[in-house]
Amino acid sequence: GVECWLGVPGPEGLLAVGALYRDPSGAGHLRSVTTHPSAAGRGLGTAVSAALTRRALAVCGSATLGVYVDNAPALAVYDRLGFRTHVTFRSARR
């Protein structure tokens, strides 16, 4: 289901990477977006997320993603890109 991977190369490997997955509904779903700790704060995760979002919108017509609610840097990126919370899931041990 992965349509493409995008990455930002560095001298010793990838500095940021992410994938676009086409889910069964046809929507483009951003997955596995991550930035190497040595490259944090340089906007590389934002660049990968923006490129994946543009591709999802162009190819699929919609873009979705999942993110943990305690991941403040990622939430800020996705907010700037125009993503909005539609559903929140919670898990807990009883």
Results as ranks from 00 to 15, higher is better:
residue 3 E to N: 05
residue 4 C to E: 09
residue 5 W to V: 10
residue 5 W to Y: 08
residue 6 L to V: 09
residue 6 L to P: 02
residue 6 L to Y: 02
residue 7 G to T: 02
residue 7 G to H: 00
residue 9 P to F: 08
residue 9 P to M: 12
residue 11 P to Y: 00
residue 11 P to K: 06
residue 14 L to D: 07
residue 14 L to M: 12
residue 15 L to I: 04
residue 15 L to F: 09
residue 15 L to K: 00
residue 18 G to Q: 01
residue 18 G to K: 06
residue 19 A to C: 15
residue 19 A to S: 12
residue 20 L to M: 10
residue 20 L to P: 09
residue 21 Y to H: 08
residue 22 R to N: 01
residue 22 R to D: 02
residue 24 P to V: 11
residue 24 P to M: 10
residue 26 G to T: 03
residue 27 A to M: 13
residue 28 G to F: 09
residue 28 G to W: 04
residue 30 L to C: 07
residue 32 S to N: 05
residue 32 S to K: 10
residue 32 S to D: 12
residue 33 V to L: 07
residue 34 T to M: 15
residue 35 T to S: 13
residue 36 H to S: 14
residue 36 H to F: 14
residue 36 H to N: 11
residue 36 H to K: 01
residue 38 S to W: 12
residue 39 A to V: 11
residue 39 A to W: 07
residue 40 A to S: 13
residue 41 G to D: 07
residue 41 G to E: 08
residue 41 G to N: 05
residue 42 R to P: 04
residue 42 R to L: 14
residue 44 L to S: 05
residue 46 T to G: 04
residue 46 T to N: 00
residue 47 A to V: 11
residue 48 V to D: 08
residue 48 V to G: 02
residue 49 S to P: 10
residue 50 A to C: 09
residue 52 L to K: 06
residue 52 L to S: 04
residue 53 T to R: 07
residue 56 A to L: 13
residue 58 A to G: 02
residue 60 C to E: 03
residue 60 C to W: 04
residue 62 S to L: 05
residue 64 T to L: 15
residue 64 T to A: 09
residue 65 L to Q: 01
residue 67 V to C: 06
residue 67 V to M: 06
residue 68 Y to W: 13
residue 69 V to F: 12
residue 69 V to N: 09
residue 69 V to K: 02
residue 70 D to F: 11
residue 70 D to V: 13
residue 71 N to M: 13
residue 71 N to W: 07
residue 71 N to P: 04
residue 72 A to Q: 04
residue 73 P to M: 05
residue 74 A to M: 10
residue 74 A to R: 00
residue 74 A to Q: 06
residue 76 A to H: 08
residue 82 G to H: 12
residue 82 G to K: 03
residue 83 F to T: 05
residue 83 F to C: 08
residue 86 H to L: 15
residue 87 V to W: 12
residue 87 V to E: 06
residue 87 V to N: 12
residue 87 V to K: 09
residue 87 V to Q: 03
residue 88 T to A: 05
residue 88 T to D: 13
residue 88 T to K: 07
residue 90 R to W: 14
residue 90 R to S: 14
residue 91 S to P: 03
residue 91 S to V: 15
residue 92 A to P: 11
residue 93 R to D: 10
residue 93 R to L: 15
residue 93 R to F: 15
residue 93 R to T: 06
residue 94 R to N: 09
residue 94 R to K: 00
